[in-house]
Structure formats: structure tokens, C-alpha cells
Design a protein around this nucleic acid. Structure first.
Lengths: 220, 220
DNA sequence: TGGGTGTAGATTGTCAACAATCTGCAGATG
DNA sequence: CATCTGCAGATTGTTGACAATCTACACCCA
């Protein structure tokens, strides 16, 4: 039960590299437990889409390719448009202020060049927005998609110019939410996600395909 | 690995009643295996949303209430509208003919009063439609939602009048797909799903809340 | 009689050992 | 020299046993 959360944390933080093999004995020793609970955690993580199980061969941290990331971004665009519409109808002035504060936090992070904080705040902003929509099932699906996207380890050569654009999009979205323009909020949110997808593509091209040295790497 | 599929089948078919407790030893004996693999299957099924785990108390087949079913229907409406648009762009004439054949099968089932066959064909029709959209991740999410909806055991007092209406909606959808009207196909599909939600509500009202006798029932 | 309490049985959580399968390498063979 | 074969070690799949926790019922007491 706890092993699953710890493994999930390590996978999402990148502590366990994408594509690396997870040895049952190794993980068990690392967590100070036996193989039984580790295997159970693996099964749960597989259903959550974070690892891949190969019968009699072992489990691997899942690798999300560009094509699959594309699919996920398009799904997010559809869900986010809906979430934006609902959130506009549901959000209180306090909620809007909270969203603005999150954007401010992102802006400060960009100004100080702290990309990690920016990334966290960005995830938090979108998560809060979907949460405001008030559909718990959608929030669960959304989080799953975001988790899977984090398995698409791209070069992350975020240039501050791109981040500034993204910041502007965020502000426009919250302005629509604050002024009750549901349809416009949804549309901007969808466009924002699709633009993020394009930004990912531009990051992927220089690096080409995923280097082989990161596949089936040993760890734990 | 196989235990999970068997349990999933038994849950979705209703062989294991919604809300019933699944005893580890009982399931293990039933499947002719030991408790270890059973516990692994439980963890996977929990992540799939089919069972609910309560620490030190056991696992129960999940119960979907009206509020949650509502959320799922609204999500399906959003996804299906998108799927309808994509499917229209992707579908070949053969695909359209296949969809029509599925509707014919539903019609025959209604005519002969075979509600089980109608239900299967209906699920198959929508599944195929989402599959045609060509987004594998969306298909996976869609199937998960449909699975969860089957945990909302309503009275299923399907009257043939209602089914006829549903059949007509199906034909209109495929007509749009066949004639390349993507936006219209999406809109009709969304409306169809939302209408299904309303039909569920009308089925729920007479029966009121779920009777207590079906909760935490012993089985396996 | 109603309600709290303790205990016996059942059930879940965990572990270590055994069986089945895979992997890597050394040696044979053409 | 390349390829196939077979074994040794490592890893996964499964099992039965033990510890921790919960549940239900009998019992006691006000």
C-alpha cells in the first residue's frame, strides 16, 4: 500500500529512470520489505500506466513515445476545454484569485530562472483548474494523463521566451474564467494545451529519437 | 495475470454482485490458485476501478452511485463527441458498413426481445466507434469508463420504446459519419450519450436508492 | 434487559522457501 | 569464424506458514 506510493513518487520524480528495469529483490531490499508487497505494488502501478509488465521477464518504468504523447495531449485538449467551461461556471472569486496567485508564482519562477518551481506551479495550476470543474472522475483521468506525460522525458530545453508565451495564455484563461466567459475559457484552454503539444514537438526534433542507452537500463 | 482477467469477467458479467465482499481464500480456492496471485489481481483491479480496497478489512466489488454515473456519462459525452468527429474523418466505407451491420443486429435483438444481445451489440457499436477514432489512449479511457458504468446496476427496465429511440439515434450518427459530416456526427453522439444519461435517471427514480441487502453481501 | 467487554475464530498482511523460466556465456560444431 | 547447444546463475511465479488485525458472539454487570 505504501510501497506503491513510494515507487510512484520515485518514478514521477525521475529517481527511477524511464525505461529502467525494476528488480523485485532490489526494490524489496531498497524499501526494506519482502517481494510480496512489491509485486502487488507493481500490478497496481501497471494498471496506473506507470510501469510495463513483461511476463517472466520483469517490470520496466514505462516509456512514452512522441506518438503516444501526442494522443495524450489531444485528449487533454478535449478534457481541458470541458474543464475550462465547467470551472468558469463553478469558480468563486476566491478561486479566481487563487489561480492568479499561481500564475504569479510561475512568473516569479521564470524571472528567477527556477524551472523546477515553474514546472510544479504549472502542474498545480492546471490541476486546480480541472479540480474546480467539480467532476471527480475527470480529475482522476486528467491526473493519470499528466502522470503518463511525465514519462515522456523530453529534452526540457525550455526557453524563457516560450515560458512567457505560456504565461500570457494562462492569464488570458483566468481572465475569461473571472469574467464568466465559459466558452471562451474552454477554447483558450484547449488552444493552450495544443500549443503545449507543439512546443513539445519543437523540443523533440533536435534530440531525435530516444537514445538507446536509456532503455532497459539497470537500476534498484 | 489470468486471475485478473477472470475476476474482471465475473465482475462485469454480474457473476460477482456489485458491493459484495471478495474473500481472498474463497477466490483463491475458486480459481484453484493460492492467495498471492489473488492479492496481486485485486491490486490491479482496484487501479482499474472495479473493486474497492479497505485496509485490513478486505476488497469489495465497487458500487457506482447515481452521482458518479452522472459524472461518467458527462465525460463520455465529451469524449464521444471528439471520437465522433475523428471517426468521421477516419472511417472507410467498410467501417461505415460494419457500423450499420451492428445497428441491424441491435434492431433484430429489439424485435426478438433479446435485451442481452441488444446490450452487447450496443456496447460493441460504441466501442468500435471510439476505436475508429484512432486514439488508443482515448479508447483505453473510454473502456474504463464503460466498465465502471456497468457497476451502476440499475433496474434495467428497458422498454422497447426507449430502445427504438436509441436505435434511431444510432442510425442518424452513422449517416453523418458516412456522409463525412464530422461536426454533426460529434454533436449527435454527444446528445445520444446525454440522452442515455437521462434514460438512466428515469430508470433510477422508481427504484429509489440501492437496496441495502445488496451491500457487503458475502460471495465467493 | 440493555450495553459494554473479552475472547475465539476468521481474515488480511507479510515473509521465506521452492518451482519454473529466462539470461548470459562457454564450448562444440559446421 | 559464425552459429548452435547446453549448462549455471539469476530472476520471476507460486505456495504455505506465521504475525497482525478485525469480527462476531458469548458473557458479565449495572
Amino acid at each position: 500500500m505504501l510501497a506503491q506510493r513510494e515507487l510512484e513518487r520515485m518514478i514521477l520524480s525521475g529517481e527511477l529512470a524511464v525505461g529502467s528495469k525494476l528488480n523485485e529483490n532490489g526494490v524489496a531490499r531498497m524499501l526494506g520489505i519482502s517481494r510480496g508487497p512489491v509485486r502487488e505494488a507493481f500490478r497496481a502501478l501497471e494498471a496506473a500506466g506507470l510501469v510495463r509488465l513483461e511476463k517472466n521477464r520483469g517490470v520496466f518504468v514505462r516509456q512514452i513515445g512522441v506518438a503516444e504523447a501526442d494522443e495524450i495531449y489531444e485528449l487533454r485538449a478535449v478534457l481541458d476545454e470541458y474543464a475550462g467551461r465547467l470551472a468558469t461556471e463553478q469558480a468563486s472569486p476566491l478561486d479566481v484569485a487563487d489561480l492568479r496567485a499561481r500564475i504569479d508564482r510561475m512568473e516569479r519562477a521564470v524571472a528567477s530562472g527556477d524551472l523546477d518551481t515553474y514546472h510544479d506551479a504549472n502542474l498545480g495550476f492546471h490541476d486546480r483548474l480541472v479540480e474546480l470543474a467539480g467532476n471527480a472522475k475527470m480529475l482522476a483521468l486528467y491526473r493519470r494523463l499528466v502522470n503518463e506525460l511525465s514519462l515522456h522525458r523530453r529534452a526540457t530545453l525550455d526557453q524563457s521566451g516560450i515560458l512567457a508565451v505560456s504565461l500570457g495564455e494562462h492569464r488570458a484563461i483566468v481572465d475569461c474564467i473571472g469574467s464568466g466567459q465559459a466558452a471562451a475559457a474552454g477554447r483558450l484552454l484547449r488552444d493552450h494545451v495544443l500549443a503545449s503539444r507543439e512546443r513539445m514537438h519543437q523540443n523533440v526534433r533536435p534530440g531525435q529519437a530516444v537514445p538507446l542507452t536509456t532503455r532497459d537500463r539497470q537500476s534498484a
